[in-house]
């Protein structure tokens, strides 16, 4: 399969990249790892006239701690996320999530920025970012701005990015040490998108959940932040009754399509199952 013709650009700075994206207009697409975009181009579902390759922009790469936040450059690959020891210690849910994305080859190339910015409801990182309360740093012709992940996703492939804007970094408030987190993903095989998946981050105090946040993947047109589900376990010991309430609350906001991963009713049910499993695992890890 051969994609449609396009002109290729490789800017060296964010400033040049956003200038190109603004000048070239809607026919231009930024190219990160390309593992969502290139398959779409090969199927001719996407035919941009210009690709602005971000790989030569050094300032978009890297992982660093900044006070109480971790900042991850948009062009950081999933492989780099998995290999980073500071992330493994402070935000282990990112490594756990990256490991269930696609396969090793795709993770060497696929980027965390591309994963969150593309707006594909099947991508795994967006729900984790909703769960963690991450903020996306965005550059555009008019300068920089920040958009909360929880306000970023508007529909399938539709985000709060304005034309010419791109995500340059992800800023994640680090949960307190001793937090427990888990990403549970049900998939048919390696490399598949989730039938349903849930991210949980919680803290325990005196045997009870002090805080809890839950995100859901591939269960609607956008990733979901399951506030009611999280409220159902705060203040409890995360006993069977609380887990049941949380699962029901997650199922109530899930609106998956029927597809070859299963009928909508099944996928909705699996939303609850994934929440229950993620809660159980996060609880055992907290302390």
């Amino acid at each position: 399969m051969i994609p449609g013709a396009f002109a290729y650009h490789r800017p060296k700075t964010v400033k040049d990249a956003v200038a190109m994206l603004s000048e070239l207009g809607p026919d231009a697409r930024p190219l990160a790892g390309g593992h969502s975009l290139i398959p779409m181009m090969k199927l001719r579902l996407s035919s941009p006239a210009h690709l602005v390759d971000l790989r030569a922009i050094g300032e978009l790469k890297g992982i660093r701690a900044e006070g109480a936040e971790v900042v991850i450059g948009a062009m950081t690959t999933q492989h780099d996320v998995i290999a980073d020891s500071m992330l493994a210690a402070r935000l282990p849910i990112l490594r756990e999530t990256a490991l269930v994305i696609a396969d090793p080859q795709v993770r060497y190339v696929g980027t965390i920025g591309g994963n969150v910015a593309n707006g594909d409801p099947g991508n795994d990182m967006p729900a984790v970012m909703l769960c963690l309360g991450a903020v996306y740093q965005v550059a555009g012709r008019k300068g920089e701005r920040r958009i909360a992940a929880r306000k970023f996703y508007e529909g399938a492939y539709m985000t709060a990015l304005e034309p010419g804007e791109m995500v340059t970094a992800i800023r994640i408030p680090v949960p307190p040490s001793g937090h427990g987190a888990a990403y549970e993903k049900l998939k048919r095989k390696v490399g598949d998108y989730a039938t349903a998946a849930a991210a949980v981050v919680l803290t325990m105090s005196g045997g009870r959940a002090a805080t809890c946040s839950i995100g859901l993947t591939n269960l609607a047109e956008t990733p979901l932040w399951a506030e009611e589900a999280a409220k159902a376990v705060v203040g409890t010991t995360i006993d069977a009754a609380a887990v049941k309430k949380a699962a029901a609350a997650a199922e109530a906001i899930a609106s998956p399509a029927s597809d070859n991963r299963g009928p909508a009713e099944y996928r909705k049910k699996m939303a609850g199952v994934m929440v229950a499993r993620a809660l159980a695992r996060a609880k055992t890890r907290a302390g």
């Binding site: 490789r10 190219l31 390309g34 593992h35 290139i38 398959p39 390759d53 080859q105 060497y108 190339v109």
Partner: peptide, 18 residues
């Protein structure tokens, strides 16, 4: 799959210019 700068990559999902 080929090895590119110390990474395994799927060469059907990368442009030669990359």
């Amino acid at each position: 799959t080929v090895d590119l700068d110390g990474r395994s990559v799927k060469s059907c999902t990368m442009f030669a210019v990359q």
